[in-house]
Design a protein around this nucleic acid. Sequence first.
DNA 1: CTCTATTTTTAGATATGTCTAAAAATAATT
DNA 2: AATTATTTTTAGACATATCTAAAAATAGAG
Lengths: 219, 219
Amino acid sequence: MFTTLTEENYLKAIYHISQSSGTDVSTNAIAKQIDAKASSVTDMLKKLADKNLITYIKYKGVNLTEKGRQAAVYIIRKHRLWEVFLVDKLNFSWDEVHDVAEQLEHIKSQKLISELDAFLDFPTHDPHGDPIPDENGQIQRTNKIMLSQAQIGNSYTCVGVIDSSSEFLKYLDKHQIGIGTQIQVEAIEEFDHSMSLKINTKIMVMSKAITNNIYVKSI
Amino acid sequence: MFTTLTEENYLKAIYHISQSSGTDVSTNAIAKQIDAKASSVTDMLKKLADKNLITYIKYKGVNLTEKGRQAAVYIIRKHRLWEVFLVDKLNFSWDEVHDVAEQLEHIKSQKLISELDAFLDFPTHDPHGDPIPDENGQIQRTNKIMLSQAQIGNSYTCVGVIDSSSEFLKYLDKHQIGIGTQIQVEAIEEFDHSMSLKINTKIMVMSKAITNNIYVKSI
DNA sequence: CTCTATTTTTAGATATGTCTAAAAATAATT
DNA sequence: AATTATTTTTAGACATATCTAAAAATAGAG
């Protein structure tokens, strides 16, 4: 069934919120994510419920139906594939891709996406380390943790970021941190939980605001 | 200045009509091209005139301003570059690209287009042989003629098509005719102006309905 | 368990882009 | 030149997606 660009953005928002905050997504949470007023959200929720993309109980929040989840995940798949395209083929940096991918994700063509996938050699992760759902909507789960949860003395590889804002990504670029970068935890400051990290042979200190936004995997 | 997707489609339509039928594009001609009612077109023309994209005199038809022409040509540039991408990189055939390019042409990102252009190695023509406007809106004019205007005994190269419909392009595919195909005019039937052509060493007869839709260049 | 604060929904308005039906202007015909 | 036909525009309505302001429901605090 046909979904409008706006509907797709709502589905994506609901999906992302339910990923981080569990079930029963609130109207206000969606309004904040979409940057719209709660009343506008309520209107759209009725529409999405009519289309069986969400289950919606007044005052109780919403959940995606299987159909809605499939739709949301497919949009995310498209978004992330386009991000890979932009970085790998068109020389975009990882802080430049979001706005363009946000537009490209709404292009409707099955063949376009399957061919793009093949052209990019079936990538499994986007430039920010986020997994790319497969054509059946399956998402590979990795055993990543937030850098803030890392243990003293252990070594890790950066596998992703949470905050994908241009500002944060530029901060990482400046300190030569990217997907695949090796990080060793030298010390953790009890007071503010800031970390001393060995990165590219140099030691640097990161606040919890930073380490909360970096995903790492033990090595 | 910001242009909506709908405005862009109107500008493109006006541009294409004025290319084939000269100045003072009529409301009805636009309505037909856009597949909308004349009253809807009138509404949009007022809007485009307010934005200085067209000059519009009631009952007299419209013309693109320089600003409008630039906007239209840029959309066409984007459309044709995406068509090249789809055919050259994603294995689309030339009869499959139109609908997808129609969506992709509205993506807004200067960098995307300049990088795509470079990635495709600065193509000069799209898969149907239409010239790709450069970044300044300049369009290369070629001395092509319609195959129906070709002379007996002369040899030509196919350089483009007029009708880009899937049906017509599939007809050409079936007879192994594409951009670059050599065509020699063996005979012309006076009665219906059908042509006997030597193509790929075989002789075939084409009606004027066909030869009117193929561009060729003398060799 | 009330009362207050917050969240959510409803009601009504606005902007975009579309339509139908009728009116106005232009073009064509006799 | 007058009448008819066609084109174009206006007027008013409708659908989508949004907003503000007010009402209703839920959650939180004492």
